[in-house]
Design a protein around this nucleic acid. Structure first.
Lengths: 219, 219
DNA sequence: CGACGTCATTGATTTCGGTCAAACCGAACG
DNA sequence: CGTTCGGTTTGACCGAAATCAATGACGTCG
């Protein structure tokens, strides 16, 4: 829990709240959803899914080592965490976590900057889902993953994606077939190469960002 | 600024940071976007828009009296506030606002709960944009507006929408034509009635929620 | 009051991505 | 090493929403 940056006293009180959760790959319903939770990924990778009625699911996001996740209690839609690989997670009831953060500036700041980051990412996703074409969405997804879990490589990145095509599709609002087709097109365009189900090599990150509809310049 | 709930000392320091912004209806670029801003709507209504390349814009959200808005600095996409009617706004540089919030619990809590609310709404929007049909999106939009600015009415609500059909379309990822058609269908189905461009009467909120794809029960 | 301009509605047609279906691949197993 | 099974890719076709094109309504300003 070093990543929480909490001081000694806070650390002890956090431990008292902690629900350690070990999850095996594919586990769903990792956390209680009758109350909002704050979850920290110690090791592994998870997806946060939201369910509309009719069994349709949207993958709200993917989370990796050291990521915070705010998992709200069920309201108009139900949220659940689901492990993409074997995981080590730490969960706190949100209300108590927040109360505790009030007395620890570092913890509070960590939580705040996480929330700002989560909000930014969620807005980027909204923009993608509302305005972007399939091609742009897949490119956007790959750029985002490259920035988060990619290993630098030449003028691109190496990716080992822990999620299935279905997860990707549910994340960017496309079907697995469309994701697959767009990946093929990106491969044909020489922007990426793939090997096996999960290995993706981004050959030209700048061009991929262009394809993703990012504003030119900066970053 | 009573809504900030800040104590006396904080209040004074906030005033020192404050950039009062009066905006006329239709004004764009209300805030500086070279640095992140925290904006409070004192009076009026604004939209937060994000621009992808190629001039496409997504309305990230609508904000009304007493709403907080976190407006990030330009990165992969550019964000801007735009007034829907004559407004009175108060803007703070985000970094200084956050620093100040560290020493005032009430302010910090207000900001925190605002962020959690914004994140929830943004996730709901992602779900809508990623999974829902045009019909469901329009219904979802109306339900959301009813909850935020609707006047209770029978078993429904009365709405006076300050935004255009284009704004609505850009918000829920549809064209104005599709929004219009769906409104017509909802009217034909007896769920709403309209008069003029902006008056909407929701006749059966429960049925509209059903139409919106909300989970049954609760709320 | 009337004419103009903007915004909204309605209709015809196109298109992108979804659906359905078949072939293909790769990892785990005997 | 071959089989099997889930996940992926590819192809043919379909449909919901976008686009294109008029028409219609509202508000506002002379």
């Amino acid at each position: 829990m070093a990543s929480l940056g909490a001081n000694e006293a806070t650390h002890l009180r956090l431990q008292a709240l902690t629900r350690y959760v070990g999850a095996r790959s594919g586990d769903s319903r990792v956390t209680d959803n009758s109350a909002s939770q704050v979850v920290l990924v110690v090791e592994g990778a998870v997806k946060l899914i939201a369910s509309a009625s009719a069994g349709r699911t949207q993958v709200m996001g993917f989370y990796f080592k050291d990521d915070f996740i705010y998992v709200p209690a069920r309201e108009t839609h139900a949220y659940n965490l689901c492990a993409l690989k074997d995981c080590e997670l730490v969960a706190f009831p949100a209300t108590e976590f927040i109360r505790l953060a009030q007395s620890d500036k570092t913890l509070n700041n960590n939580f705040l900057s996480h929330l700002l980051c989560a909000l930014s990412r969620c807005r980027e996703k909204s923009l993608a889902l509302g305005q972007k074409t399939a091609r742009e969405r897949v490119a956007t997804f790959l750029v985002s993953m490259a920035e988060r879990i990619g290993a630098p490589f030449s003028n691109g990145a190496l990716l080992d994606l822990p999620m299935s095509r279905r997860d990707i599709g549910d994340n960017i609002g496309l079907t697995i077939e469309t994701v697959s087709r767009q990946m093929t097109e990106l491969r044909n365009a020489g922007l990426v190469s793939t090997s096996g189900r999960s290995q993706v090599k981004i050959l030209d990150l700048a061009a991929l960002k262009q394809e993703a509809g990012h504003l030119p310049g900066l970053s």
